[in-house]
């Protein structure tokens, strides 16, 4: 049973190691963005409110959606099952 396996050896254990490690990178990225927005505001360029209120023009919206679709394909594409060979 999974709980009998030595801690750290199961797929679930390894997934948790990876997600724990990844969590730091999310935090680092978010904080950097926060800093960029603060510096931009301090320099009179734009502020966090401008980012919150941003609505992409149609061309940009399509481009962003395409990037999201590509991300989903890269990250989750392997969830597809192969059609069985006859």
């Amino acid at each position: 049973m999974p709980q009998d396996e030595p801690i750290g050896t199961t797929v679930a254990d390894r997934s948790l190691q990876i997600t724990t490690a990844l969590s730091a990178e999310v935090v680092v990225l978010r904080e950097r963005l926060d800093i960029v927005e603060r510096l931009a505001a301090a320099h009179g360029l734009f502020g966090p409110g401008d980012v919150d209120a941003y609505v992409p023009e149609p061309g940009v919206a399509e481009s962003l959606a395409a990037a999201r679709r590509a991300f989903i394909e890269r990250i989750f594409g392997t969830m597809r099952v192969q059609a069985p060979r006859r």
Binding site: Q3, D13, T20, A21
Partner: peptide
């Protein structure tokens, strides 16, 4: 206690955090 799921998860996350 090692067989207790939440504690097992704690061991994994705590070890990773310490090394990181």
């Amino acid at each position: 206690m090692r067989r207790y799921g939440p504690n097992r998860a704690w061991y994994v996350a705590r070890t990773e955090a310490q090394r990181q």
